[in-house]
Design a protein around this nucleic acid. Structure first.
Length: 568
RNA sequence: UCGGGGAUCGUCCAAUGGCAGGACUGCGGCCUUUGGAGCCGUCAAUCUUGGUUCGAAUCCAAGUCCCCGAGCCA
C-alpha cells in the first residue's frame, strides 16, 4: 500500500518523524513489553457505512502493523443486535478491502466471544466483583450521581455471591423480561470517573442477533466486551479515538481483576473535514430523509460514496499519511483531500475531450463532407498510455465558457478576430457570431489554418489559448453529475445542520458531448480526465443506452480565479 | 462545578533544552499543445503571565480557552 511513499523515502533518506503512537510502540518494542510483537485491529460496529474518518483509523492501524511487521485484524464489534445489520457488515468488508487494509484470514466478530465473555462474567461474579442489579434504567440513571456529586450504591449491591450466580444464570436462560435486571461491575459509585460507577456489563435483550440468532438474550455492553475482545485476540496496541480515554481505566480494571492479557490502549483524535459532517447519526439522517441518494451518494464522505465519486484507494492512503495523527481536535481542510485525488488521478487517468456546456462552431473553410482522425496523447504524464484517434469535422462543439464576444484583458480564449488552438487539431480564428432574435449567441463561425494540423504552426506563430472540442457529427452524449460541497459552512453541525446544506451540491447536466473513444471504453468505475475540466468516472447507473458520468473533482482553474477577482 | 484530554502559520503535522520546519491553501513568477501538470519564490505560528536556564514551543508555577464524560449506545 505504501509503494509511492516508500519510494519517496528511499530517495530521501532523511528519516521521517515518528508520530506519537509509533514512538510509544518503539519504546514498547525496546523494553520488550509485548515481546516486540505488534498486533492492531479495526473494530467497527456494523451499524452504518464507513466514512473517511474510519479510513484514517483503518489505515493507521493497518499501516502500523505493516510498519512493524505485525498483524492487523478486522473485528466487528457486534454487541447490540438492535442496531446492527448484515448489510453493514458486507459494506464494511468491501470498504476495508478496497482501501487495501489486508486482514488476511483474521476476520472476527465480537459475538464469536460471547461464550468466553460470559465465563469471564461468572468469574468476576464469583470473585464478588459483579452483581445482578434489579434497578430499572431510570433508577440506575437517578443513582449514578452527577459530574460533581457521587452516586448512590444500588440496594442490590450486597447480594450474596450465590444469589448473583443464580440470577445471572437465569438471566442467561431467559427467565426475566427485557430491562428487568442487569449485571453490574462492583467498583466505586463515588469515583470521579463516571465509567467506574458500577457500570452495566450485561443487559437483557430478547432480540435475534445477526450472527448468533436466538442463542442469547443477554448481550454484553461495549465497555465490558471491547477490552475482552482485544485481550482475546492478543492485540498489543488498541488504537481508538479520544472519547474512550475515560474508559481505559475501566478496561484495565476488568482485565486486571480477570488476570487476563492486557493490551495498551492509545487514543488519538478523530478526523473532521471541512464542509461535511462525519457523525454516523447525521449521515444516517441525510440518508433517511433523502437529502442524499443513499450511503454511497458521491457527495457523502463515506468510503462507498467516495469510491463511486471516483476517488482511488491510493489517494485516500496518501491523504491519511499527510494528515498525520495527534491528540488535538482538528478539522482538516477538504482542499487537502482534493489535492490528494488530483495528484493520483493526474498520474493515472487517461485524457479525453468532452463538452459540458456546448457552443456550436462552424469552420467555414473546412469542407462539409470531409472528416479526419487526429492523433491525441492519452496521458501526457505517462506516455506509455499511448495515443488515440479523435474525429474532426466542419461542425464542432466547444465549451460556451471558452468564447466571449467582448473579452476582458486576460481572457486567452476564443473571441471575434482571435486565433486559438483546438487541442490536437488546428488553429482557428473567429470570423463571425450568429445570434437569435433575443441576442443569444447560437453559433460561432471560424476559419482554420490547414498548415497547423496537429496544433502546431509551421511558422512559429504562437497562440494564447488551447480549447477542447468534440466533433458534432461524431459526438456521443452522456448525463453528467457535477458535485459541489455538501454544506455551505466550513464546520456544519448543531441542531439545525440540515439548514446548512448546499442546495446546489448536485447539478445534473442532461446532455454533455464526448469523443467516441471514451464511450467505447466506458464501464462503471472507469476514471478519466476531461481535459481542462476535471476528473470524472463512469457511474454504475450507466446502462447500455445511457452513459452517466460523475465529476470527481475539477482541475485547478486559474482562469476561474482571475474571473472571480475581476468581478469584485 | 468534578474527572480526563488538548492548545505551534488560515488548515494539518513536525521540532522531545540548541537556527520554529514540511504539506495543503493563498499570493508572485517560470514553463506549457490542458489557464492542467511541473518547477521556483513568497506571506504566514509557539494561548497568557511569571519562573528555572548561557539558551525554553519543549521544564516548573499560575491563569485562559477548547474538547470529551452523568445510554441497559458504541
Amino acid at each position: 500500500m505504501h509503494s509511492e511513499s516508500d519510494a519517496a523515502t528511499e530517495n530521501h533518506p532523511e528519516k521521517q518523524p515518528l508520530n506519537f503512537i509509533h514512538q510509544i510502540i518503539e519504546e514498547d518494542n525496546r523494553t520488550g513489553k509485548f515481546g516486540s510483537r505488534v498486533h492492531t485491529r479495526f473494530p467497527p460496529e456494523p451499524n452504518g457505512y464507513l466514512h473517511i474518518g474510519h479510513a484514517k483509523a483503518i489505515l493507521l492501524n493497518y499501516g502500523t502493523a505493516v510498519k512493524y511487521n505485525g498483524k492487523f485484524n478486522l473485528r466487528f464489534d457486534d454487541t447490540n443486535p438492535i442496531k446492527e445489520e448484515e448489510e453493514y457488515v458486507q459494506s464494511i468488508i468491501e470498504d476495508v478491502k478496497w482501501l487495501g487494509a489486508d486482514y488476511e484470514d483474521r476476520l472476527f466478530y465480537g459475538s464469536d466471544y460471547f461464550e468466553q465473555m460470559y465465563e469471564y462474567a461468572v468469574q468476576l461474579t464469583r470473585k464478588g466483583k459483579a452483581y445482578v442489579c434489579d434497578l430499572s434504567a431510570e433508577e440506575i440513571k437517578a443513582t449514578r450521581g452527577t459530574l460533581t456529586e457521587p452516586g448512590q450504591e444500588s440496594p442490590y449491591r450486597k447480594r450474596s455471591i450465590a444469589e448473583n450466580l443464580d440470577l445471572l444464570e437465569r438471566m442467561k436462560a431467559g427467565e426475566f423480561p427485557d430491562g428487568s435486571r442487569t449485571l453490574r461491575a462492583k467498583i466505586d459509585m463515588a469515583s470521579p470517573n463516571l465509567n467506574m460507577r458500577d457500570p452495566v456489563m450485561y443487559r437483557i435483550l430478547h432480540a435475534p442477533h445477526h450472527r448468533t440468532g436466538n442463542k442469547w438474550c443477554i448481550y454484553p455492553m461495549y465497555d465490558w466486551a471491547h477490552g475482552l475482545e482485544d485481550s482475546i485476540e492478543r492485540i498489543t496496541h488498541s488504537l481508538c479515538t479520544l472519547e474512550f480515554e475515560d474508559h481505559r481505566p475501566l478496561y484495565d480494571w476488568f482485565l486486571i481483576e480477570l488476570d487476563a492479557y492486557r493490551p495498551q490502549q492509545i487514543e488519538f483524535a478523530r478526523l473532521n473535514l471541512t464542509y461535511t459532517v462525519m457523525s454516523k447519526r447525521r449521515l444516517l439522517e441525510l440518508v433517511k430523509k433523502r437529502y442524499v441518494n443513499g450511503w454511497d451518494d458521491p457527495r457523502m464522505p463515506t468510503i462507498s460514496g467516495m469510491r463511486r465519486r471516483g476517488y482511488t484507494p491510493e489517494a485516500i492512503q496518501n491523504f491519511a499519511e499527510r494528515i498525520g495523527v495527534a491528540k488535538r481536535d482538528s478539522t482538516v481542510d477538504v482542499a487537502l483531500l482534493e489535492f490528494s485525488v488530483r495528484e493520483h488521478l493526474n498520474k493515472i487517468a487517461p485524457r479525453f475531450m468532452g463538452v459540458l456546456n456546448p457552443l456550436k462552431i462552424v469552420i467555414d473553410n473546412y469542407p462539409e463532407d470531409r472528416e479526419e482522425l487526429l492523433e491525441a496523447i492519452n496521458n501526457p504524464e505517462d506516455l506509455s498510455a499511448g495515443t488515440r484517434q479523435v474525429p474532426f469535422s466542419r461542425e464542432l462543439y466547444i465549451e460556451a465558457d471558452d468564447f466571449m464576444e467582448d473579452p476582458p484583458k486576460n481572457f486567452f480564449r476564443l473571441a471575434p478576430g482571435r486565433e486559438v488552438r483546438l487541442r490536437y487539431a488546428y488553429f482557428i480564428t473567429c470570423t463571425n457570431v450568429i445570434k437569435d432574435s433575443d441576442g443569444n449567441i447560437t453559433e460561432v463561425h471560424c476559419s482554420y489554418d490547414p498548415a497547423t494540423s496537429g496544433g502546431d504552426s509551421p511558422n512559429g506563430r504562437k497562440v494564447k489559448g488551447t480549447l477542447h472540442w468534440v466533433s458534432a457529427r461524431h459526438a456521443r452524449t452522456a448525463e453528467v453529475r457535477l458535485y459541489d460541497r455538501l454544506f455551505n459552512v466550513e464546520n456544519p453541525g448543531g441542531e439545525h445542520f440540515l439548514e446548512q446544506l448546499n442546495p446546489t451540491s448536485l447539478t445534473i447536466v442532461d446532455k454533455c458531448y464526448l469523443e467516441p473513444a471514451l464511450a467505447e471504453q466506458a464501464v462503471p468505475g472507469f476514471r478519466f480526465q476531461f481535459e481542462r475540466l476535471g476528473y470524472f468516472c463512469i457511474d454504475p447507473d450507466t446502462t447500455p443506452t445511457k452513459l452517466v458520468l460523475n465529476r470527481t473533482v475539477t482541475l485547478r482553474d486559474t482562469w476561474a480565479k482571475i474571473a472571480q477577482k475581476q468581478q469584485k
